[in-house]
Simulated assay, not measured.
Amino acid sequence: MKYNQLGRSSLQVSQIAFGCMSLQSTQAQPVRVVREALDLGINFFDTADLYEQGKNEILLGRALGQKRQEVIIATKVGNQWNAEGTAWNWNPRKDYIITAIENSLKRLSTDYIDLYQLHGGTIDDPIDEVIEAFEQLKTHGKIRAYGISSIRPNVIREYVSRSNIDSVMMQYSLLDRRPEETCLDLLYQRQVSVITRGSLAKGLLAGKSAQSYLDHSTTVIQNVAATIQKIGSKNQITPALTACQYVLQKPVVASAVVGFRTNEQLRDCTNGNQVPALTTDDYAMLQNSVAPSQYTAHR
Rank of each mutant, 00 (worst) to 15 (best):
L38Q: 07
F134R: 01
V160D: 14
L118A: 06
P153K: 05
G78H: 09
R107G: 10
R107F: 03
Y159D: 01
F44C: 05
V160E: 08
Y159N: 09
G61C: 11
T110K: 07
L60K: 06
I148V: 12
R157W: 06
Q136R: 04
G147A: 15
R32V: 13
K94L: 06
D39I: 11
E36P: 03
K142P: 01
Q66Y: 06
V155P: 08
S150N: 11
A83N: 01
W90Q: 04
G65M: 15
T75V: 02
A74P: 03
I123T: 05
R157S: 10
F45N: 00
I98H: 02
E36T: 13
I98Y: 02
I42R: 10
G141Q: 10
L115K: 08
Q66W: 10
S163Q: 13
I42S: 01
F45S: 05
S150C: 14
L118F: 03
S104D: 00
T139A: 14
R162I: 10
H119G: 02
D114H: 15
E57Y: 02
I73V: 14
N89G: 13
T110E: 02
I113G: 09
P126Y: 01
A28G: 07
L118G: 06
A133V: 09
L105I: 08
E132L: 13
W88G: 01
H140E: 15
I127E: 00
A83Y: 11
G78L: 11
Q69D: 07
I131H: 01
R68I: 10
D39A: 15
K106W: 13
D49I: 11
T99R: 09
D49M: 01
Y112V: 12
I156H: 03
L115N: 04
E84T: 11
G78F: 05
G120A: 09
N89L: 01
T26V: 05
R32P: 00
A83F: 04
G78K: 03
E84W: 07
D124E: 12
V34R: 07
L64W: 08
T86V: 02
L38C: 05
Y146T: 11
K55G: 06
V71C: 04
L64Y: 08
Y51E: 04
G61R: 05
R157Y: 00
Y159S: 12
E70N: 14
I123S: 08
T122G: 09
T86E: 10
F45D: 01
Q29A: 05
S109T: 02
G120W: 08
E158L: 09
L60A: 05
I156Q: 04
A87F: 06
S167K: 06
G65D: 12
N56D: 14
W88Q: 04
Q29N: 15
R162M: 15
I151A: 11
